[in-house]
Design a protein around this nucleic acid. Structure first.
Lengths: 120, 120
DNA sequence: CTTTCATATGAACATATATTCATATGTATA
DNA sequence: TATACATATGAATATATGTTCATATGAAAG
């Protein structure tokens, strides 16, 4: 039952308890929300954002990304690893080079929505 | 001019230099990309994601959010501050309580796209 | 097989950040 | 005014994370 569940804070207990229970019943599964946060965490670094935006234009090898962004090959490589783990980029080998590209198109949509939010 | 700009890595210099210059010219302003990363950084924490999803359902006071998520009032209050700074939530005072709600609807769209990305 | 070059990776370091604890602020009520 | 309660906040702590440096891996060429 729910009536043995008591809310300690907030005086107007009954009203809030209803709302609390309703909201709780509507919440998505914990693991889904965790995964969502993990996805946004990957987007939440300016180096990774810059890499992804760079890849909007063209498939690129690691050293070209480093050149475009003015950063070390190692730093870029580490971040590409994070992006790959998040399934945001894919890569293919061509001789000594490895070319990276966007894994799917949700990224563009999400970034566009992000831009919209910022610019208002 | 551009020809004095030399790429140290990558043997096939000429080809890559073209791509690098092209991509560079298409990149959005640095500050915009920084702000975008800052926005996603706010989304990139499971407590804040859970707070936002909670607010999808209903306006709530701080102690109710804490109750729904099973966390301390202080922790929630600190995170609400971050969300407020990111202009993702707004609040209004009603007596001793402060009610928080979503600041705009981009958040739902962004989260939906995030869910879509995860579930494929 | 050895060398060269592009990329990947482990360790170390510095920085950022989420939560807790204690306490301050602000509002309503006795 | 004094008390109670909801919220906010500063300091401290623990943990996560981004970059650098050194080095390993892997592919092409001599």
């Amino acid at each position: 039952m729910t009536e043995d569940k008591k809310i300690e804070c907030c005086d107007i207990t009954e009203v809030h308890e209803d709302i609390v229970n309703h909201v709780r019943s509507k919440l998505p599964e914990e693991s889904l929300l965790y995964d969502l946060a993990e996805l946004f965490k990957v987007f939440g670094d300016s180096t990774r954002v810059r890499i992804l935006v760079t890849l909007f234009e063209s498939e690129l090898c690691v050293c070209d990304i480093a050149e475009v962004l003015g950063m070390s090959q190692s730093a870029i490589s580490h971040q590409l690893r994070v992006l790959k783990q998040g399934k945001l980029v894919k890569n293919r080998r061509e001789g000594k080079s490895v070319f990276y590209s966007l894994a799917d198109d949700h990224i563009r949509t999400i970034f566009q929505q992000g831009f919209d939010h910022i610019q208002e």
